[in-house]
């Protein structure tokens, strides 16, 4: 699969916030005016955002793009509020200028045949971004989407709008779709056959399980991994991913998208 993708060098961008508000329970949509970035970013890539509001918290927050709109010069980010940085981000008012490093890493790369997209929770962000591209390029795809509950479900409408053949939803508490993890939905769709690749992002256990399912079905699988990181552009070695064979890769440069069969789970 196309994992070695031409990459633009990361730069510093000042991006004006044009929208920032709740989109599902605990999930926010940030829209930024970012002319240069919107032309440079590809689905699966991420940006490293300096969040204002607390001078004692110096690390940036790495976030994937969930929407790239070059014609309007906009970049969209969908994020879950999980800690201090994302909480402060959720309080950033429209009109604020955010310092953003990007584009970081490489994206999903070219996809051929029919794709199965699998997302859990806010892992849906880079998946929805890719779905939109597949839709525009006319590549057929289905999606398995998991969330804790109906209230926290994010991405279902966007996936359908992007042109998914089928979107199978699973919630942990059964309040929407089938009851269970996204893995269950992925398993059901995979059983139908006909997929040439699986693209997955979500909690690490979901990605590990989906990598296993895809492996058993003989379908190549790409995963978008998360790591604690600092720079986001290859300068510090804090974001390592252990690969089969003992090699250490960097999540921010060699990823975040990896061939699942190369990852030590």
């Amino acid at each position: 699969m196309g994992l070695v993708v031409a990459r633009q060098t990361a730069g510093l961008h000042e991006c004006e916030v044009v929208g920032n508000g709740p989109d599902a329970k605990g999930i926010f949509l940030l829209r930024m005016r970012a002319e240069g970035l919107s032309r440079a970013l590809a689905p699966g890539q991420f940006v490293n955002v300096a969040v204002p509001g607390d001078a004692t918290q110096i690390l940036r927050v790495p976030l994937s793009c969930s929407g790239i709109l070059p014609d309007e010069g906009l970049v969209e980010i969908s994020y879950a509020v999980v800690g201090d940085g994302t909480r402060r981000l959720s309080e950033v008012p429209v009109g604020t200028s955010l310092g953003v490093v990007g584009p970081c890493g490489h994206g999903w790369g070219p996809i051929e045949g029919k794709a199965l997209l699998v997302a859990g929770g806010i892992g849906a962000a880079p998946i929805v971004c890719e779905a939109r591209r597949l839709g525009v390029e006319g590549v057929p795809f289905d999606a398995a989407l998991g969330a804790q509950s109906a209230a926290r479900l994010w991405g279902e409408a966007a996936l359908a709008r992007a042109g998914a053949g089928e979107v199978l939803v699973a919630t942990d508490d059964g309040s929407a779709g089938i009851a269970g993890f996204a893995t269950l939905a992925a398993e059901r769709l995979l059983a139908k056959g006909g997929y040439s690749c699986v693209l997955c992002c979500g909690p690490q256990p979901l990605m590990a399980a989906v990598a296993g399912l895809a492996g058993k079905a003989g379908v190549p699988c790409l995963v978008s991994l998360e790591r604690m990181m600092s720079c986001g552009f290859g300068a510090c070695c804090t974001c390592n991913v252990s690969l089969v064979g003992g090699r250490q890769a960097s999540c921010c440069m060699d990823g975040p998208v990896f061939d699942a069969s190369e990852v030590v789970w």
Partner: peptide, 13 residues
Amino acid sequence: NGNPAPRVCEVTS
């Protein structure tokens, strides 16, 4: 090879 992940965390300042 260095150490396993996670390799970085944030503290006050």
